[in-house]
Amino acid sequence: MTAGSRVAVIGASGAGKSTLLGVLDGSVTPTAGRVEVHGAEPAALRGRELRRLRARTGTVRQHLDLPGPLRVVHNVNAGRLGAWSTARAAWSLVRPQGTAEVRAALDRVDLADRLHERTDRLSGGQRQRVAVARLLVQRPDLVLADEPASALDPALADVVLSLLGELATEQDGALVAALHDPALALRHCDRVIGLDSGRIVLDAPASSLTVAGLEGFYGVVR
């Protein structure tokens, strides 16, 4: 995968999209083959080295996995835990650090007024945007997103995917997004990879594909 690329991963439910993203961020250990992220193999690293590598990868997980009782400001700040010392992380829970950047990030996803709210008081779509704001303050080189727009209205879905795409490309990184909406995939990505039962069955530039063609891939019959 080259710097600056935006890749959509598509495939039916259970095709292996989330597993692929998990392998990339190191939360799933590959059973065969090898993966290189930022030029290093995550499975071969330990301790500080591994942390530094992981801090360069940001993920929006499918189930978000944001601790509910934590306030929005802390959940966004959690994106910087890879860069912060433990003492600073602990102190930030008492006096939130770097609120200006948190506020700016929330502003970009239209949630600025929810800074001090408990995350579990937000709607599904709002939580999804908190997860995106977390990535905005983390500033990773590699952005992994597992259905980041599943609970958003069409306008917000576009905003969020543009943000993730910008984030990835502005520092010569890359975006890998698992998406179910063919139109969204074609609008925001320049390469589409199709998975079926864990194998790549489609790998083509977005410009060569059509919405109808991708729907056919899913088996949509109109």
């Binding site: 190191g26 990868t57 996995d65 829970l93």
Partner: peptide, 22 residues
Amino acid sequence: SREALRAAGASAPAAWLYGTVP
């Protein structure tokens, strides 16, 4: 949530503070 934080590079105590304690 703790594992998600670990995957983004957080240290074990920090992941515990942000992921489990709340």
